[in-house]
Design a protein around this nucleic acid. Structure first.
Lengths: 245, 245
DNA sequence: TCCCGGCGTTGACGCAGATCAAGGCAGGTG
DNA sequence: CACCTGCCTTGATCTGCGTCAACGCCGGGA
């Protein structure tokens, strides 16, 4: 769920001065499909909102009245089974769109991991916006297509990879986050907890912890702190991860 | 990956006489976004093709030059790991679109299960088509959004459900196929093998077989033949399946 | 300062589902 | 007809990961 296009699309008006969370470039905040002069119209349709860490701002099953664009921070998307088992379907960062689905209700919940800022559009206004800016619709189709590819990759991971391979895939993909700006990083921090990682990879907390420890003891990675990772053997990790991941 | 919209969108020209594979209604073959008079143009961009059972017509990694619309039969989409482990990411039937991704190469393979007919568009022509018919682009966005929702549901299944729950979810969703026309069916046939089901649900053939046998011995289903299923206790099955599935 | 609660790590043990193995059945072929 | 091959089923055994449990660390609050 985290294949960014060439450049994060941030719909929030007047945020041109904010540095991108994933790299230190300063992206234009203007949707490249919307002429600068029309930003006022966009601003009228959007409400900038914030969510504190641990707060959810989309609840599975609620009426899907809004459409979101994350402009800062990281959130987790997840689905729950009646007995509480949780599957995190993705971590979404700056530029990500949420709530595309045609359905009447949201198919997943979204919860802020760190401090999240997002831009909220009413769906009816979004519809009008899309009618006026077909380029934006085209862009959304690209985004959705990319997410679909990422989702299939994740299915391969969940259905067929071992715990070891899952962690390797996860670390490899985290190291590639925000790569529109840079090469894969060898050192990065994980904003999410071990529990989140477990629920994302279809494992338990204990298995995640154990497997990370094992990868460390084998010299593939270093773990300076619980939220920090250094990739010591990118090639080996990539090979372990299997396909693209 | 199999949430059909209200009505399968079949782009194949001149196929109005073919009954839908999922129900006995005869759908118009004309994309509802394209005026009837323009069908000639559509026909010029499309090539109708066939794939015999077991034949693959998309190969992961190949240059993504075409875009497909399935007009008859059922195909399986899958990804492979280097050592041959396979994850089927979806079964696609009449009306499904394939190859949306923006990437240069296909992210998955597609293989015909029964006799498949599909309509092939060159991507460059598709792009021109979409420019002329924004309604069609809108429709594709809806389709992609729906598939995304289905993909998230499948991640929940692969990451968090037991074998029993996976089979129940699978049977429940199969019973809902083509439901645009009818209520969930209590009896239907499975065009795919046990191996395909296993690779779709992230299990082994043996577990699929055993679990189906168990569900049968418990009176939840009947299995008149290997390719035929009767749901005897839809409510219980749905409950077992967990969420929406 | 101490206490406390959340998070992470590690160990011992158990189990769901994988693996290995054998045999049945149906359809295709000579 | 006999034979073969692919698919399915069933049984016995194995194992990767889940479960249960204990403990260490760290940050916040009084």
């Amino acid at each position: 769920m985290t294949v960014p296009l060439s450049r994060p699309l941030v719909l929030e008006p007047n945020s041109a001065a904010d540095p991108c969370a994933h790299c230190d470039a300063r992206h234009a905040s203007v949707c490249n499909a919307i002429p600068d002069g029309d930003m006022a119209r966009l601003a009228a349709a959007a409400v900038v909102m914030e969510a504190a860490p641990g707060t959810s701002f989309i609840n599975e099953g609620d009426p899907a009245n809004y459409f979101f664009n994350v402009t800062r921070g990281t959130a987790k998307l997840f689905k729950l089974l009646p007995d509480g088992r949780r599957q995190i379907t993705g971590f979404v960062g700056v530029g990500h769109f949420l709530g595309l689905a045609v359905s009447e209700t949201y198919a997943f919940s979204a919860e802020a991991i760190d401090h999240v800022r997002y831009c909220r559009f009413s769906r009816t206004r979004l519809r009008a916006l899309l009618d006026d800016y077909p380029l934006m619709e085209k862009r959304l189709l690209e985004v959705a297509s990319n997410e679909l590819v990422a989702a299939q990759e994740q299915m391969l991971l969940l259905g067929r990879k071992t715990a070891r391979e899952r962690l390797a895939s996860f670390l490899a993909s985290q190291s590639r986050l925000g790569v529109s700006c840079r090469h894969p990083r060898t050192r990065f921090s994980l904003p999410m907890t071990r529990g989140d990682i477990a629920d994302y990879l279809g494992l338990t907390i204990e298995t995640v912890s154990r497997t990370l420890t094992k990868l460390r003891s084998e010299g593939l990675i270093e773990i300076p702190s619980a939220t920090e990772v250094v990739i010591r053997a990118p090639g080996a990790l990539e090979r372990l991860a299997g396909g693209a991941a």
